[in-house]
Every structure is written in C-alpha cells, then in structure tokens.
Nucleic acid binder design. Structure first.
Length: 911
DNA sequence: TCTCTGCGGAGAGGA
C-alpha cells in the first residue's frame, strides 16, 4: 500500500542492530492525507491504491530504512511525504508503517522535478542552480545538439534524412545567423552526427521486425514527482541520444541517471524496464576503442533497482532544497571543480552574491541592499514557480469536470480523425460538442490526451484551430478527447534570469539609480516636439533627454500612446536604436501601430521589426514580424538592421533578444509589470523610459509577494522629478471624469478641450438623449438593483443590464458602441447570455486599455462588498474611465455604501 | 474559485 501525508514533527534518525547486522532507520511522524487525491487515482493504481488510514487525522509513524534515511534527513515538519509499497505494522496497539524492499520514498511528491534538473544536479547541485539563475546562453554546441535531436525524431517518424536536415536547419535560421554559422556548414555538421544514428537504426530494423518506436514522449509521474521528455522509447525502454563521443565502455554516469529517470517515468506508464540505451552520435569505426573494441554508437546498460532508487533520492534532494529555499553549495555532490566548465561562473556568482561554494569565490559581494533585493525577489519568483507546480499537480488531483469548470481543460471532445503530415507529424481533429469555453487559445501548447493527461495516452500538441472543430498537431497520433493547459515555467525562469542579469551584469550607474544611490540625470533639449500639450511635450523632452531613465505617468485617455510614438520618433531621428516593449502583445501592437504612423517618412519600414510568435501578434502587424526560419545571414541581417524592435517583455528574455543591444528601451503599461519583468526589457538598453499608470491595475501574480509592486511605481515615488504626469484627457465627458480625477489623481486630471468636456450621446449620428428614459440622460447614472445575493453572479443585475442595452439601442446607439464591465468572469458569462453578441462584455482587467461610447458597470455585490476584488480601488478607476459619453453603474446601493470610496462614488453617480 | 498574459514544451553540450 502507499502511505501519504504531512510530516508532523521532528524526524528521528539512528542506527539499530538487527538480525541482518547494523541498519539505519528514520522514524517520521506523519499525519496521513485525509484521502486519496481523488477516487479515480486510487482505483487505477495497480496495487490497490493509497492507504486511507482508519482515523484520518491522527499522527502515525512511518519508518524509513537504510538508504531512505538520506531522504528522511531532508524532511522538515509540514513537508509532504509518499512511501510506496509500505507495510503495515501493529506496535503497542497503534498502526504504523515501514518501507519494504519494494518501497520508494518521495519527498514533496507534487513538486514535479524535470529530468534535466536531476541530470544537472547529479553532476553538481551548483550547476543546477547556476543553470536556473543565469540560463543557458545561445551557443553553437547546444543549437547543434538540438538540431541532431530533432533530426533523430524525424528519422524515427519516417522522414527522409536529407529533407529533415534541410528543414530543421532552415527553421533555426535566426539563431544560426546570430552564431555566425552558414546553413551548409551546419547541415554538414548535423549530417555527420545523424548518419551514425541512421545506420544504427537500419541495423535495428533488419534485426527486429517488430521494433516498436515512439519519439519524444512527454512523461509525467505523479508518484515519483518527475517529468520529462524521452528522446525515444524502443519496445518500452528509454533511448537517450547524445551528440558527441564516448569511447569508454560504460555510458557516462549522468547519462545513465537521465535514462533511469525515463525508466521510472515509463514504469508508471505501465512499462517494466531494466534496459537503457545511450546513443553517442560521434562514436564510429574510426574511433575503435583499443581496450573494448567497441564501435557501436549505442551502449546498452542494465538499470538495477539500486540506480532507480538513487535517482529518486536525488530527486528528493532537489524537491527538499526548493521547498526550503536554500542555495546549494556544491559540497552536496562529488563534483571536481577543476574539470567544470562553469567553474568561473560559479565563483563569480558565489563571490558577488556572497554564497558558499566548493569552487570558491571571486570578487567583492554586492552591497547589502542589492543582496537583500536578490534574496527577496528570488524567493518571490520561486514562490511563483511553486504555483506553476501546483498547476501540474492539478492535472491528476482534479477530476476532468473540475478542470473544465476551472477553464483549464476542454473535455468530452469527440475524436474525428488523424492525418499524417509530410514531416512525419500528425494533424488531429476533434469536435467540441458541448461548445464549452476554456482559457486555451489558438497557438497554445497543450496536453492532448485520450481523456487522462497523466496516466493515459497523451502528447504535447499545438492548437492550430479552435472552433467547434478543433485542429491540433502533434508528434504522435493520439485519439484526442481532452485538451489541458500545459503549465510552463518559462516565465518564472526568465524572470529569474532577468533579475540575475540586472544585478550581476548591469552597469553600476544603472544600479545606483535603481537602488536610490544616484538621482537620474537629464540632458538639455531645446526642441519642441508637441505644440498643443505642454505635459506631453515635457514628457517627450524628458524621454529624449534622459541619461538614465524617465517616467511618464499617463492616466486614462491622456494620449500616452501618441506621446510614446512621438518620443520614439525623436530618438530614431537622433540615430538611436530603440526597443519598444510591454507586458502584453496587445499593448505592444497598439504602441507599434501609433509608432508606425510617426515613422512613416523617417525610416524605411523594414527597419522596424516585431519579434514574437505568430499567434501572439495582431494580424495587421504580421508584415513586421521577424520570421525565425530562413537563411541565417538573411535572418540576422533583418534583425541587426532594425532600428526599432518591438517585443513583449517575456520575449525580451529570450535567448535571441538577449543578444541584442539598444540605446533606449521604452516600456509601455509598465505599472502592470513586476520588477524582474521590467528588467528583462531594460537590461537590453543603455537608458530606459517607463510609461504607465500605477492608479490602474497592478501586475498579475499568483502568489502574494514582493512582485505586486511595479518598478514604475517604485521609481515614481522615489524620483518624482524624473516623471511627468500627463494631465489632459481626450476621452471622457467632464462629468464622467470628475470622480476618477478627484479620487485617484488629486483633481489634476482635466479635459483636454471644451469639446471633450462637453461630449455626450447627442454627438453620435442618429442618437438622441431625449429618446432615453430620464434617469439615463445624464452622462453618469446609477441604477439600484437589490440583487440575487449569489456570490460571483447576479442574474437580476444581468437582466437589468439587458434592458439598459435595449434602451440605448432604442435611442439610436450602435451595439458596437456599448460595453459592459463586470468584476467576475462568472458574471461576464451570465451577462453575455442576456445581451446581443456584438455588445462587448468583459472583466475590468480585460477592458483596461480600451474605451467605448457607453459603458455599463455591473458591481455584482449584494449585502456587503466582501472579497479582494473590491479592495483594490484601482479596479474601479479602470472601470469608471472607459466611457466617452455615458456611464451607467448598476448595483446594490446598500452594499456599495458600506465602503467609503464606493459610497463617494455613489454620491457622485447620483449627481 | 478574484482578477490572468506570456512563453520555442524540455533539453540541447562543452572534456
């Protein structure tokens, strides 16, 4: 049976004499989990499922024997523990448990450690840490290795060798170009490695008629807490490809460990594996090993239980280290620093961050405030990472229905067909019969499965089309009936690297400014850029003249996008190379659109490049998108030649963008970015300009932590003189603007012109306010609805809103000029069923950045204003500043009056 | 269950 629970106290480790001699044991006080994660999980396990211990609350004792005491030493109270194949023992009337010869002990099993992490860790825990902290830079051996692996996968799927090489090299044109490689030379290099594999494969095919292969299988183990992607699986056993030479008789130890990880993963998927194969591509007859006579690129080895258990213990070390937040030192393993490629990096990082390491330290530690900063943000980012891990755990902890309710999965799809594609991949089609929604979008990477993403047949796939019929592409033909969001650590990885680069690679002057040690400086600029708006002109002047940074505070409707575009034009005219960035693709494209207008006669169109994925970029910006595939020289020239590059901050952290350098980085919607997120963009430039509004929505983070305040806000507070607030708005009727101006901008926000101040619905073609009921004729009105008292929806408000929409339509307002805003997604869908399709209904968060003629706000609160969503007043600011000509607030006045800010809002709305 | 966008998935290798 499996025993699972929470460590409930101190672990006692000691040696005892047994009939077999001296043995180590650890006694772990454990509070068993109430139940198996869910009924399904327990029922599908071969051994009869997780133990449900009689009294689910009481603490019991689990004894871990011999080598498992190593994992026991890692345990801290509160950690989760899983022991498989445990035996039950009665001791002094109490039921206790102990490991058996078949047992595995898993620390924090829901923390899914990747196979790469384990492979790095076994070499040196420090290597694992450095890889996480500073990323793997763009270098040729790595890119070549990736190419050889891709071609290997292609060969397994039956693709022609030459065709595969050409196609794969072409796909990586941009990266190869940045490395200064030519397509022919790379193709030759890849061919040399791939030919050995092809020969070996053919030999195998002749020997074994039923050689069953599967390429690049994604595997997740809920028992061992490991995930990874096997290069290939042959007759149920892992095959691991290595680009390079190994003339020794045995595979390298870390390669064995890697293969053993896959063996464990395959075991959980019904395999029973004790053979692993390593393919060293450069081994050939020419390199015949004198001693062994070995010429085959393939080395087979037997994986004993000892190795598999060792791998789980390694994995436990990582899980425990990540849970505690400690930094590895390198003493944890037998690594020899003098042979390590990362020795210098290791010494520099430990020197600068004042960490203990086996390699020793180089250089002086960073100042205390920087060390404190690193520590704070490292913890915050790692907390975000744990949230991603929790997302993984939900793949097996939640039922399909719960996942679907969470919008994390599309379930009960009807499989339609599979069609082989030329490259050996597959196109799969399924019908979404229920027409259900999810957060999945076209272009997303998903787990496509036959209904069970973890234990069933599942593949990593890409969504090509998402209508009633769903089209996805994948390496293997899964009979897909379910799609799950695939949780990715990419964002957290990049945040960590961005912070590392800012502190360890950033120049000193920049850090002086970021840490409040030096005030930002500005050069004199004599030019006038904008002649009809002093603040906008001042903002451009500051942006252009900034020697360190400038901050532009742009409240709703104040022409922030235009100001950015004008500033960038001025920079381009001065011959500078500019990076334009923002958190979302939408914000980047909006800013780029305005910029293109400004740049029309200033530079050639092909000197403006948009970097990002095809699915993320708006269709009309597609002509500017930098295609990654192509001839290396051509691709790299296109990028290097660009004077303006636009990309999301996340893309700024990619390996390609990290190679780029700019004079200025301009970051829009900067108040929605975390500090490390902002760093990803500004790391690439000498100077930076942040544009945003910290009175609107803050960054979205999963965990409560230091990431919630933006760098923009912090710098605006620290250096008010480096900032300019745009104060004239071009959007709202004056009556609409009053509340937000007083409440959020000290009354400083005002209409840009008398026309703006006076705008109302009568200005619109075919609209007459007289046709509206009297209570809606004023630009701001309040409709009191008692509400249905449910928590995240309100059908009465929804019904009333449908009526209001009809009234405005009757008065001549176009449906497309009306927007409805609600705090909760549940209420958004409730309202959507009541109003016509062409009325935009969305959450506050998604309305930020846009505006409408008429806005109706549903507060969805009865009785009281409980819940975090109402506590953040910035959300009301966003909601109330979307309309141009009319705003209607719909809600329960009694509930709203319980909060002073909402009460003032009520007074204002009632006129 | 409060809001939710990004990502070239993980792993690729150098002696």
């Amino acid at each position: 049976m499996h025993v699972r629970g929470t460590v409930a106290g101190e672990v006692d480790v000691r040696s005892v004499s047994t009939s077999y001699g001296e043995s180590d044991l650890a006694e772990v006080p454990l509070r068993p989990a109430d139940d198996a994660p869910n009924g399904d999980a327990a029922a599908t396990r071969g051994d009869g499922g997780t133990a449900t211990i009689a009294d689910g609350r009481e603490t019991t004792t689990v004894t871990l024997w011999n080598k498992w005491t190593e994992s026991a030493e890692l345990l801290e109270p509160g950690m989760e523990l899983l022991v498989t194949n445990a035996k039950e023992e009665e001791y002094q009337g109490e039921t206790q448990y102990a490991t058996t010869g078949e047992s595995y002990v898993v620390v924090e099993p829901s923390f899914l450690v990747s196979v790469t992490s384990i492979r790095n860790w076994v070499e040196c825990p420090r290597l694992y840490y450095l890889n996480k902290l500073s990323g793997v830079p763009l270098n040729y051996p790595v890119v070549k290795g990736t190419l050889v692996h891709e071609v290997f996968g292609d060969l397994l799927r039956g693709r022609d060798l030459e065709e595969a090489i050409d196609a794969r090299v072409e796909e990586r044109g941009l990266q190869l170009g940045l490395l200064g490689e030519t397509a022919d030379a790379v193709a030759e290099d890849v061919r040399e490695n791939a030919t050995a594999i092809e020969g070996w494969l053919q030999q195998g095919r002749l020997d074994e008629a039923e050689d069953v292969w599967r390429s690049e299988q994604l595997l997740i183990s809920e028992t061992f807490g490991i995930r990874g992607r096997a290069d290939a699986v042959r007759r149920g056993a892992p095959v691991e490809l290595k680009t390079g030479k190994n003339l020794k008789k045995e595979p390298r130890f870390k390669d064995k460990v890697q293969a053993a990880c896959y063996a464990l993963l395959l075991e959980e998927h019904g395999g029973d594996v004790d053979i692993g194969t390593l393919l060293y591509t450069k081994n050939s007859v020419l390199d015949r090993n004198e001693e062994t006579g070995d010429l085959d690129p393939a080395k087979e080895f037997t994986m004993g239980e000892g190795l598999l258990k060792y791998v789980v213990r390694l994995r436990n070390e990582i899980a425990a280290k990540e849970t505690s937040g400690d930094i590895p030192t390198g003493y944890e393993a037998d690594a020899k620093c003098e042979y390590c490629f990362e020795q210098d990096t290791c010494m520099v990082v430990s020197g600068r961050l004042d960490q203990e390491s086996k390699a020793g330290q180089i250089g002086q530690p960073l100042p205390d405030e920087e060390l404190e900063y690193f520590d704070r943000f490292y913890r915050a980012i790692e907390e975000e990472r744990r949230e991603v891990h929790r997302e993984y755990a939900k793949l097996w902890e939640q039922t399909a229905e719960e996942r679907a309710d969470d919008d994390r999965a599309l379930i009960d799809l009807e499989f339609v067909e599979k069609r082989p594609l030329d490259e050996g991949r597959w196109e799969l089609r399924a019908r979404n019969t229920g027409g259900a929604n999810s957060k999945l979008r076209e272009g997303d990477l998903v787990l496509a499965s036959d209904g069970d993403p973890v234990r069933g047949d599942s593949e990593l796939a890409r969504i090509e089309r998402l209508d009633d019929e769903i089209v996805i592409t994948a390496d293997e033909p899964v009979e897909v009936t379910r799609l799950d969001v695939y949780p990715s650590e990419l964002t957290t990885d990049r945040l960590l690297v961005a912070m590392h680069d800012a502190l360890l690679k950033g120049n000193e002057r920049r850090k002086d400014v970021l840490f409040g040690r030096a005030d930002p400086e500005f050069a004199e600029i004599g030019e006038e850029f904008i002649d009809n708006n002093d603040r906008q002109n001042e903002a451009v002047t500051k942006a252009v003249g900034a020697e360190d940074c400038a901050l532009i505070h742009g409240p709703p409707g104040t022409g922030k996008t235009y100001t950015i575009a004008r500033a960038i034009r001025a920079m381009v005219e001065r011959g500078e190379r500019v990076l334009l960035s923002a958190f979302t693709n939408r914000a980047v494209d909006n800013a780029l659109e305005a910029l293109l207008e400004q740049l029309e006669d200033v530079i050639d169109e092909d000197r403006v490049v948009r970097v990002g994925s095809e699915s993320g970029i708006r269709d009309d910006m597609e002509p500017y998108r930098l295609e990654r595939a192509g001839d290396p020289d051509d691709r790299v020239e296109k990028l290097q030649n660009a004077q303006v590059v636009a990309a999301t901050t996340s893309t700024c952290g990619s390996r390609v963008m990290k190679e780029q350098a700019f004079d200025v980085a301009l970051v829009d919607e900067a108040a929605q970015l975390t500090e490390p997120g902002t760093c990803a963009a500004i790391n690439l430039a000498e100077r930076f300009v942040l544009v945003g509004d910290h009175e609107q929505l803050p960054p979205v983070v999963r965990a409560e932590n230091d990431l919630t305040e933006s760098l923009f806000e912090r710098l605006v507070d620290r250096y008010p003189e480096a900032g300019v607030m745009l104060d004239r708005q071009y959007r709202m009727n004056q009556r609409i603007q009053v509340f937000a101006s007083n409440e959020f901008y000290d009354g400083r926000l005002r209409p840009a012109t008398p026309e703006v101040a006076a705008r109302n619905l009568d200005d619109l073609d075919g609209v007459s306010r007289d046709a509206l009921p009297e209570n809606l004729r004023d630009p701001v009105s309040f409709v009191d609805v008692e509400g249905d008292r449910s928590q995240y929806t309100d059908s009465e408000e929804a019904a009333r809103i449908a009526e209001l929409v009809e009234r405005y339509e009757a008065a001549g307002v176009e449906r497309t000029d009306i927007g409805v805003i609600a705090p909760f997604r549940a209420q958004v869908s409730e309202i959507s069923t009541h109003v016509p399709d062409d009325v935009a209904v969305d959450t506050v968060d998604r309305f930020q950045g846009s505006s409408q003629e008429v806005i109706i706000v549903s507060f969805t609160a009865t009785g009281s204003l409980e819940g975090p969503i109402f506590e953040d007043y910035r959300r009301i600011n966003v909601a109330l500043t979307r309309p141009k000509r009319a705003l209607v607030l719909v809600g329960d006045s009694q509930a709203l009056a319980t909060d002073p800010v909402y009460e003032r809002m009520l007074e204002w709305a009632r006129g």
